[in-house]
């Protein structure tokens, strides 16, 4: 029975269009194997046209055809063609530069109040830790996570503390391994958790940030009690400006997520979360970037630069750099 005589409408429909589908399948397979770039101009144009034709065929076939083989094939073909046609087109470099110029600074400006709240929680924690230490120095052991081989502790002498600050006695293997140690350090984990836990209605984020502030407050108070306030400030500032800011920013991002759960407004909570995640994630990326920068500063800068004014200058100028980037960059319309 030839096609023209076939009485079944859906069989004629299929026979008329099958060569086009086959060609589309061939182009899609080529795209999947070797990428859109490997297509010639003809093939690229054919891909767009044939894809739309196949979608139209699918729409019609669902209405008129009961041919299971045809329906399954068209569904699969259209799905794969869709994925080939709507593949991400942007280059990685373009993505990164857009993120650095527009994405991150814009998000930081929009969420500035929340970042401020993050700083506030951190500062409050610091003050609380400081006051607790003044009240009873044994709080230090509770608040500051210590390892057994850490020379710093309640019983350390001023000379021991000083040696950590200036000779790097806490890192035996020199700059690079200090950098490595940092990546696994306490603060990186804190920043990550602070961000992710924001989704649980802000509470764990705020608590962790507060606790981290307390540890720093007690740490500073310990050094102050040994008369090393200026030294420890300079020591902390060289990377701490960046590192603590990263925690405050991660906290701001976490709070933004928590906000969506607490105050979804007109939206469903999941939709509110999706909306807020756009900016919150950029803050998380910013925090990650700053933590890597802090690791570099800690690994190299802190060992190479030994006097107080230079340490303070570096710390503050790095801070000024972050502020300048986040406030000034990408103010225009994003392309």
């Amino acid at each position: 029975m030839s096609v023209a005589q076939s009485l079944i409408r859906s069989a004629r429909f299929r026979a008329e269009r099958e060569p086009d589908w086959r060609r589309l399948e061939q182009i899609v397979t080529k795209t999947e194997r070797r990428g859109l770039r490997s297509l010639s101009l003809d093939e690229a144009q054919a891909l767009a046209t044939l894809y739309r034709q196949a979608m139209a065929s699918l729409s019609v076939a669902r209405e008129i055809s009961l041919d299971r083989a045809l329906l399954a094939y068209l569904e699969a073909l259209c799905a794969r063609a869709y994925l080939a046609v709507y593949a991400p087109q942007r280059r990685l470099r373009g993505l990164f530069s857009h993120l650095l110029v527009y994405g991150i600074p814009g998000a930081a400006r929009r969420l500035f109040p929340l970042i401020l709240v993050g700083y506030l929680i951190l500062t409050l924690g610091g003050v609380a830790g400081y006051l607790l230490f003044q009240d009873d120095p044994t709080w230090y052991n509770t608040l500051v996570p210590t390892s057994p081989d850490d020379p710093r502790g309640l019983n350390s002498s001023a000379a021991e503390l000083r040696s950590v600050i200036y000779d790097g006695a806490d890192s035996e293997g020199g700059e690079l391994s200090a950098f490595a140690a940092f990546l696994f350090s306490h603060n990186t984990r804190i920043a990550l958790l602070v961000f992710c836990l924001g989704i649980a209605v802000c509470v764990p984020s705020s608590l962790l940030t507060f606790y981290n502030g307390m540890a720093i407050g007690a740490f500073v108070a310990l050094h102050e009690s040994k008369g090393l306030l200026l030294d420890i400030t300079a020591w902390l500032s060289i990377h701490g400006v960046t590192e603590l800011s990263a925690i405050a920013i991660a906290c701001g991002g976490g709070l933004h997520l928590g906000q969506a759960v607490l105050f979804p407004g007109e939206l469903r909570r999941r939709d509110a979360l999706r909306r807020n995640a756009r900016d919150a994630v950029k803050l998380a990326l910013l925090a990650a970037l700053m933590l890597i920068a802090a690791a570099l500063l800690e690994g190299f800068g802190r060992q190479l630069v030994q006097d107080i004014p230079a340490r303070l200058t570096i710390g503050l100028s790095v801070g000024a750099f972050w502020i300048a980037w986040l406030t000034l960059c990408g103010r225009g319309e994003a392309p």
Binding site: A15, E18, D67, Y73, L273, R274
Partner: peptide
Amino acid sequence: ILAGTYVVMLPKPVLLPDLAE
């Protein structure tokens, strides 16, 4: 949910012959 994504099976287009023909 947060990202608005689904994870799906990648379908394989296999066209069996039309029994009507």
